[in-house]
Design a protein around this nucleic acid. Structure first.
Length: 598
RNA sequence: GCCCCGGUAGCUCAGCUGGAUAGAGCAACUGCCUUCUAAGCAGUAGGUCAUGGGUUCGAAUCCCGUCCGGGGUACCA
């Protein structure tokens, strides 16, 4: 039994014996003792005063006395106001570390029979432009959340819904036909998604020019936007696509394949992947059928112009469009179809959508609509709503060219990592190839940690000039700590020293810093669990940082290999090895690799 | 207008379901490499937790108002 559970139950016992009161588990508030006080675990006694009818100090003292007598691990206690600080025997912490080192899956829950299936949708790009910083946050969160859920005994299916059809891709296709000069990724050397993205921008440029001309000729803004030849042609192309025009469909397939190749490269570099990919072109008709069924069954209604709507005023919401008057489907229609297909394809217990908070309303409505359509899982959909990434210049806007491109960003960070490492002369002993691999690892580590350490729910600021940091509370700091540990372990191996798990030390030879570090390690499973419950990779990120920081403090003033007392040396070696293992394991949950040297 | 989210040090962020004197990093200043990796460690300075009320033994945390910022809001996704 873990020490806090034990203390909790003995506290309940004490309350019964001392004050004849049956308290609830929840009323026993245990927390880690603050650094400025003596002790390891603190019991807050304020809630018990009404039963003890004594002063806080006296109540704490009585409970403290009882605990010390009945819990072997409690060495001593002290009372400060209403806080009962308990000091735990050092050997207890050492025992936990010895156990943790031997535990293959320390921090993870054992996979069990009654594993639930969670499907996590993330990434969800449009196929008309390359991935940018906003997608990066999405991808990193989705991937990390999946890893964290796996560690919490979920069977996870990572999925991606690719928005591969619609007016946006037609715009790029049209631009290619008119101004593409037969360019392909092969003959231009361009990454496919960038090539298509540039065409999209080219379309927008021409379109804008046409609008300007029409405005000059006295047309209204709205009319001009509607009448411009480019947009007319794009719409025409979309109609042809929906009609299955072979030439259009062929071009569509070709250009999408360029984009997918580009995406794959970016995904691979980011270290994310998917178990199942859905394409909107394959789900939108399913959604349309569902909407039409809803219409027949009187769940939805049709307006005079032919458009189909849902009335959500009973739910305190508005009317929601489901099919346009021309019969074409909207985003909501497609999402209904995708959801239905997923629940048909998999035995899903928990469907999680990793989508930005700007779509909170959309997912609220989606859940209600699916529920109305008779799907009992509808209300159970979970929108993992994360905040936006803001730039110093404000919000990112594709058309205004203020986006930070994902590939460019990664390239830039690798450059900085390389420069930094060269200045420090850190990787001179490595081969060129090994060094490049390490730069990549550090750059990605910096980027991923920077994004994941922030509470997902909150908007965050990213300054491309300043946010690239490798010191302090950063990924590379944690990676560096791991490399340091590995270095010590290599030297230990050279000296023929093994990591021993079973040994006893005199409790007094464990320093405060060593104990702090041991306590921190034991908190890893709680951090993983909390991250799973709250859907928050940030919990794991911040834990890893605290652990690394504490290790560095320990490392600074505790010799390991040069320690004369062999038992103390073994303990420090074990402690270091365990920290290294936990850092690696924790960072893996964030999708961050850690190097053995840097 | 209405709905949702946020406001903590100059900047970027922690602060768990209310608990002790509000924590990190960056930036600034000061020390520490003949000893296991200085991408490190130690220290100084920096705060009316937007603001006004309320709830209670106790509020950055919960409730209400105000101000500021962001997002959404019936044929974009």
């Amino acid at each position: 039994m873990k020490i806090d559970e034990l203390i909790q139950s003995v506290v309940l016992e004490a309350l019964k014996k001392l004050y004849d009161f049956e308290a609830s588990k929840e009323s026993v508030q245990l927390q880690n003792t603050r650094k400025d006080f003596d002790g390891d675990i603190t019991l807050v006694v304020f809630p018990f005063l009404r039963y003890s009818k004594k002063k806080p100090e006296d109540t704490a003292k009585e409970i403290g006395e009882y605990l010390q007598e009945n819990v072997d691990e409690i060495k001593s206690y002290n009372v400060v106001k209403g806080f009962l600080n308990l000091e735990i025997d050092n050997n207890y912490w050492l025992g936990r570390i010895q156990k943790a080192w031997g535990d293959e899956i320390f921090g993870h829950q054992k996979p069990s029979e009654k594993q639930k299936t969670a499907m996590v949708e993330y990434s969800s790009p449009n196929t008309n432009k390359p991935l940018h910083l906003g997608h990066i946050r999405n991808n990193l969160l989705g991937y990390s959340l999946s890893e964290i859920l796996k560690a919490n005994n979920y069977h996870v299916v990572k999925t991606n819904i690719v928005n591969d059809r619609g007016i946006h891709i037609c715009k790029s296709m049209l631009a290619w036909q008119k101004w593409g000069n037969q360019q392909t990724p092969e003959n231009s050397g361009m990454k496919g998604d960038h090539l298509v993205g540039d065409l999209y921008v080219a379309f927008d440029k021409h379109y804008k020019a046409e609008i300007a001309e029409l405005l000059n000729n006295g047309m209204s803004q709205k009319e001009a936007e509607d009448q411009a030849p480019s947009i007319q042609e794009a719409r025409d192309m979309l109609r042809k696509w929906e009609a299955g025009d072979s030439e259009v469909v062929q071009l569509w397939k070709t250009m999408n394949s360029w984009v997918y190749e580009g995406f794959d490269t970016t995904y691979k570099r980011l270290g994310v992947d998917f178990d199942k990919i859905y394409y909107e072109s394959e789900t939108y008709l399913v959604g349309k059928d569902e909407v039409l069924r809803g219409l027949e069954e009187g769940i939805f209604y049709k307006k005079e112009d032919g458009s189909v709507w849902a009335d959500l005023t009973d739910e305190g919401l508005d009317q929601k469009l489901l099919l346009r008057s021309d019969g074409t489907s909207v985003y909501m229609t497609q999402d209904i179809g995708t959801a239905k297909m997923r629940f048909k394809d998999f035995d899903i217990d928990k469907m999680i959508y990793v989508v930005g908070n700007e779509q909170n309303y959309h997912f609220q409505v989606l859940a209600i609509l699916l529920d109305k359509l008779g799907y009992d899982w509808g209300k159970g959909l979970h929108h993992f709503s994360y905040g936006m990434v803001e730039l110093p210049s404000g919000k990112m806007k594709s058309r205004e060219g203020t986006v930070v491109d994902a590939d460019d960003l990664m390239d830039g960070m690798v450059d900085v990592a390389r420069k930094m490492a060269e200045e420090l002369g850190k990787l001179d002993s490595l081969t060129q190839e090994e060094a490049e691999k390490t730069y990549e690892m550090i750059a990605l580590g910096a980027l991923k940690y920077f994004i994941l350490k922030v509470d997902p729910k909150k908007n965050m600021m990213f300054n491309p000039e300043e946010s690239i940091d490798f010191n302090g509370n950063t990924g590379p700091f944690i990676q560096y700590t791991h490399a340091r540990i590995k270095s010590v372990l290599r030297k230990a191996a050279e000296k023929g020293l093994d990591i021993k798990e079973n040994f006893a030390v005199s409790p007094t030879t464990i320093s405060n810093k060593e104990k702090d570090l041991m306590k921190r390690i034991t908190q890893f499973p709680e951090a993983v669990k909390e991250a799973g419950i709250n859907y928050s990779p940030a919990v794991v990120a911040n834990y890893c940082y605290e652990l690394a920081k504490e290790f560095n403090q320990f490392y600074h003033d505790h010799p390991i290999l040069t320690e004369q007392d062999s038992v103390v040396r073994d303990m420090r070696l074990l402690l270091s090895a365990t920290v290294g293992k936990v850092i690696k394991s924790g960072m893996k949950l964030l999708g961050i690799e850690v190097p053995d040297r840097m």
